[in-house]
């Protein structure tokens, strides 16, 4: 059976959930080989095995992570050239999509981004995308080369199916052009202890209605009670109340959690574009006419400074 390559997303061997989702999808398409770049394979191995990676191509030379994007694309292109590869799945993150972009050009292959599903069919690999803020579902195929698909995080439920995760080391001679840009410093913001925004199954977001950086504690408290991530509208980010990484919407992150809570957010079309595919949507807003109420499963017309703390208390009480 032909190989399906899955690019592993990890931080020092701590495997991101999106990788497990990709492995789960890849199993229905062919023989699964994970591709692990950087250090920390020993930490990652058990997870990769648990979710069905038969083989793991490991490339841990420092060069590969000292330069952004291009080395990973070069490594994948080499694996595609040397093996019998039916498709390459990469995480649909900012960097994953860039790796996909370069790989597509290098291998002369079509690329599909933001896939929410990938299935095998008579026409080959078919990717499903959800576009225009979830209002339209598109099915696409790749007509040239080895399909490269960037799959959106949180689109599949990861399911274990143990395999060997046998390590195969790959040595790459990077070309000069892969080393043109160099990472000289990595600035890691203090970890919040909360799940990543795009991976979280629950997201609680605050908007202009939160009215100040210090008031975001109200949003954070509910997120923590529910075990969720914290998001923000652009109005809140532009006001400097919450970091840019937390912005949900057209020019921010696209999230698709089981539950999205919008507090003090009006529901502008650009905000909706980033959260409309959430399974359940609830909102708290003072204004009964706020457009966010058009798409909620449950809405509370009221002041978020009353409703959120009470909800936080109630969640805690139910948990006992």
């Amino acid at each position: 059976m032909a190989e399906i390559l899955v690019l592993v997303d990890h931080l020092d061997g701590d495997v991101k959930k999106v990788t497990l989702e990709l492995l789960t999808k890849a199993r229905s398409l062919g023989e699964v080989s994970a591709v692990f770049v950087g250090s920390g394979f020993d930490t990652a191995k058990d997870k990769l095995a648990e979710y069905g990676a038969a083989t793991v191509h490991v490339a841990d030379a420092d060069e590969l992570t000292a330069h952004p994007v291009a080395p990973k694309a070069e490594l994948l292109a080499k694996l595609v050239a040397d093996g019998d590869v039916a498709a390459v799945l990469v995480p649909g993150t900012a960097e994953g999509k860039e790796v996909a972009a370069r790989l597509a050009i290098k291998t002369g292959s079509g690329v599909i981004t933001d896939a929410v599903d990938v299935v095998a069919s008579d026409q080959g690999i078919v990717a499903e995308q959800s576009v225009f803020g979830g209002s339209t579902v598109v099915h696409s195929t790749i007509t040239r080369g080895t399909p490269v698909v960037a799959v959106r995080p949180n689109a599949t439920q990861p399911e274990p199916a143990p395999a060997a995760a046998e390590r195969v080391d790959v040595a790459v001679e990077l070309s000069a052009s892969a080393k043109l840009a160099t990472v000289t410093e990595r600035v890691v913001k203090s970890r919040t202890g909360r799940p990543d925004l795009t991976e979280a199954s629950i997201v609680v977001s605050g908007g202009r209605g939160v009215n100040g950086a210090e008031n975001f504690t109200v949003v954070e408290a509910l997120a923590d009670a529910l075990g969720g991530a914290v998001g923000a509208s652009r109005a809140a980010v532009d006001s400097g109340w919450y970091p840019h990484q937390s912005q949900v919407g057209q020019t921010g992150k696209t999230v698709s959690p089981q539950l999205y809570v919008a507090a003090g957010i009006s529901g502008a079309i650009q905000h909706r574009a980033g959260m409309q595919t959430s399974k359940t949507i609830v909102a708290v807003n003072k204004d009964a006419e706020a457009p966010i109420f058009d798409l909620v499963d449950f809405g509370v017309i009221g002041d978020l400074f009353d409703v959120l703390p009470q909800a936080t208390e109630e969640v805690a009480a139910r948990k006992g």
């Binding site: 598109v138 195929t141 809405g299 017309i301 009221g302 409703v307 009470q310 909800a311 208390e313």
Partner: peptide, 29 residues
């Protein structure tokens, strides 16, 4: 290098239940 095979427009989301906070909005949520 890729081709759209088909597309379909999903029915828009419809509003679910709306309640006005009368002091127990958080609990109802």
């Amino acid at each position: 290098w890729s081709k759209v095979e088909d597309f379909a427009v999903r029915p828009p989301r419809t509003t679910g239940e709306l309640v006005k906070d009368e002091g127990d909005g958080g609990k109802q949520l």
